[in-house]
């Protein structure tokens, strides 16, 4: 057993946990969190792809993971803004605004 197998399995497991919960959880907010978890799982796969036992990791996958993190935070921000806007829209709908 090596760190590679441990964290490789962790990555795949995180991805599966995230994927499952992104599909079944009842609230949009939690689905967004679940997608973030799944994306961390994918990040693990790339990080172990870069890892070398003796040190001197491959910098390219690291750059890819950083890009992936930034892309996902952007998408998350938009999704959360939609959640807030929907909340506001529903609140105004229940009020007696014309």
């Amino acid at each position: 057993m090596t760190p590679e197998t441990i964290y490789g399995a962790t990555g795949i497991a995180l991805f599966a946990i995230g994927l499952y919960h992104a599909l079944v959880l009842p609230s949009a907010l939690r689905r967004i969190v679940a997608l973030n978890v799944a994306s961390v799982g994918a990040g693990f796969v790339m990080v172990i792809a870069a890892w070398r036992p003796g040190g001197g990791a491959d910098p390219v996958p690291h750059a890819l993971v950083i890009t992936g993190i930034v892309v996902l935070v952007a998408a998350t921000a938009v999704a959360l803004a939609l959640v807030r806007a929907l909340h506001d829209a529903d609140t105004t709908e229940t009020d007696d605004t014309p």
Binding site: V47, W51, H62, V65, I69, V70
Partner: peptide, 21 residues
């Protein structure tokens, strides 16, 4: 997760995950 990535020789990624993720 950032800690695990430091362990996997990916300090840049760990920093990004901690700060952004």
């Amino acid at each position: 997760v950032a800690l695990a990535w430091v362990r996997l020789d990916a300090p840049d990624v760990a920093l990004a995950e901690a700060a952004i993720g």
